[in-house]
Design a binder for these strands. Sequence first.
DNA 1: CGAGTATATGACTCATGAGTCAGTTATACG
DNA 2: CGTATAACTGACTCATGAGTCATATACTCG
Lengths: 213, 213
Amino acid sequence: MQAGSPKWRRRSEARPGEIVQAALEVFAEKGFAAAKLDEIAAKAGVSKGALYLYFETKEDIFRAVVREAVAPNLDMVEAVLAREEPPFPDLMRGMFEHLSQVIETTRLGAVAKLVIGESRNFPELARVWHDEIVSRALTALSKALARAQMRGEVRTGDPRLQAFSLMGPILMGVIWQETFTPVGAPALNLRILILQHADTVLSGLKPRVGVRP
Amino acid sequence: MQAGSPKWRRRSEARPGEIVQAALEVFAEKGFAAAKLDEIAAKAGVSKGALYLYFETKEDIFRAVVREAVAPNLDMVEAVLAREEPPFPDLMRGMFEHLSQVIETTRLGAVAKLVIGESRNFPELARVWHDEIVSRALTALSKALARAQMRGEVRTGDPRLQAFSLMGPILMGVIWQETFTPVGAPALNLRILILQHADTVLSGLKPRVGVRP
DNA sequence: CGAGTATATGACTCATGAGTCAGTTATACG
DNA sequence: CGTATAACTGACTCATGAGTCATATACTCG
């Protein structure tokens, strides 16, 4: 051992973040049950014991990972909510652009896959995601759609289902990337997918020609 | 013990199917790792030892469950492939109708969730699903779209991405049902979702008015 | 500089659950 | 019937990995 190079350092400030980051990678790779604490610890550059200085249990770490990933999405939701009514297609294109960036810069897709896969074992997490992200975003979107319908910018129909038409293909793209691309399927350019989908679906949402009052 | 009512019966023909059925329920509920063989055995009405008369390992049972669920879907794919070119919207509505029924009558959604969640731990299964179902269906759909574009029934664009616009919202609906509904989210009427989405997306895929050659 | 303390280690324990197998029971068939 | 054997059971073994803790090391502050 070189003198002057300590075996480890005290970094109580930075540790939790490093651990959550490492855990995200391992959970995304293996799922909750198959992820090993030793591997998470190794990846975070600490021993297993150190994990227990900052977290109570393995589940605790998992929860932290999922909650961590919630934050950037709340921004997303806020963005949708905030904008005051430009023409509907412009509103959507702005939202799609924002979403593209979030997907590119975060591990949102991996976490979504985790939440989906573990929803039965961690119902509270599924509930958190639903209540704090999915439901809020969907409601905001539905309301924007309802208003656009009133203004005659969007054809009539259940706004909540229209929201599925808007968002579904993007979710499918994200899942595709996480599930099939690592297994040999051709990669997907999500940005282009989103652009073309916007083109299609926004055109499809335009009011029918020749409807009666 | 009543005489004349044996403790168990020999049913070597029926067992494998019963076991796979029970395993599907437990895997769908818990995921691969958290599913216990004792629970699967109990649900199938046999002892744990009996499982090993028909399957080598737990993974083996999992594979059987996933492969089992592939069968009805291959029919789906065939259905898409077979029909000879009615007008594109009719073709799609037929396909959507067929798909609605498959979703209602099978546990397709649950298995899809399993494949997505376990894809990293069972890459061969993800590959099987990709190669035998998803890719084939998507390719068939893309070809139909490409032909419809040639005929001027569908606007130009990458047919593979258009396929995502068609299928994504349905996948999202299925995942919603499996993930959020059990956790208190409002249930979704998939049939209606599919109908309204068909309306929206098929309208959106119609050729643009006033394109240049 | 040298207690004193917060931070970290890694060998250990112990619950869990997949997989095994010696023994038991149903059934087919002479 | 009775006997051979396929079908089945459930108590057991054993590997794994989460969680613990006695010990060691880095830092802090008087």
